[in-house]
Computed example of a mutant assay.
Amino acid sequence: MAQISGITGLNNYADQLRKVTGLTDSSKETSKAGASFSTYLDKAMSGLNSSMKVMDQSTADMISGKQNDLGQVMVNMTESQITLQTAVQVRNKALEAYNDLKNMQF
């Protein structure tokens, strides 16, 4: 991974993450305020699904000989892997928060 140096590198990295995950920056968004959690979750799952489909298609194309750029296939696989790992970690944090709430005593 390229080294992140300065605010410009950090902004570029954040833009790349948004593109991969399908999420948008809420501070730049001009749509209605108060979008629900399910909307964000739906966008994230759609981004994950499309990333996996791209990875599957590029892998199938590489195997069948339609594509000969191994580097692009590896980039697609890495993007899908990072997106899936992020989704798993978000799920784990949501379950952890749910269990914390469930175990609270009033």
Rank of each mutant, 00 (worst) to 15 (best):
N92I: 06
Q81K: 11
Q16R: 08
L70N: 07
S38A: 14
R18V: 00
S38F: 12
K102Q: 13
K93E: 14
M104S: 13
M45F: 08
K93P: 00
Y40L: 10
Y98C: 09
S31G: 15
S64C: 00
T8I: 12
A2E: 07
L48C: 08
S50T: 15
S64G: 05
S26V: 11
V20D: 03
G9W: 03
G71H: 06
N12F: 01
T24G: 12
M52P: 00
N76D: 15
S80L: 01
A14H: 06
V75I: 10
A87C: 09
D69N: 14
N12M: 07
G65K: 12
M55I: 02
Q16N: 12
I82K: 08
G34M: 01
S51P: 06
M55D: 03
D69M: 01
L23M: 11
D42V: 07
Q85L: 13
A14V: 08
Q67I: 04
L48P: 03
S27K: 14
D100T: 12
L23A: 08
F106A: 11
T83P: 00
Q57C: 02
Q3K: 15
Q72K: 14
S5P: 00
I7N: 05
N12R: 09
S36Q: 10
L23K: 06
A97P: 00
Q16L: 10
T8M: 08
S27P: 00
D56N: 15
E96W: 05
V75A: 05
S58P: 00
N99D: 12
A94G: 09
T21F: 03
A97K: 13
K53S: 14
Y13E: 12
L48V: 07
V20F: 02
M52N: 11
A44H: 05
L84Q: 07
F37A: 15
N12K: 11
S31W: 04
I4D: 01
A94F: 05
K43E: 14
S46T: 15
N99Q: 14
S26D: 04
S31L: 05
T39E: 10
D15I: 09
T8P: 01
M77Q: 15
D25S: 04
M52V: 09
N12G: 07
Q57N: 11
F37Q: 09
S64F: 03
N12S: 13
V75N: 05
Q81S: 14
S27L: 11
S36A: 12
K66R: 14
D15F: 07
S64N: 09
A14L: 14
T30E: 10
N99G: 00
E29Q: 06
K28L: 05
V20P: 01
G34E: 02
E96K: 15
D61E: 15
S51N: 11
K102G: 02
S50W: 08
T39K: 06
E29L: 06
N99T: 14
T8H: 10
K53E: 13
F106M: 13
N68P: 00
D42Y: 12
D42K: 15
A44N: 04
T78Q: 08
G71L: 02
E96G: 12
T83Y: 04
A33W: 06
D56M: 14
Q89S: 12
Y40V: 06
S51W: 02
K28W: 01
A33D: 13
A44V: 01
I7V: 12
S58F: 03
A60G: 06
G9L: 03
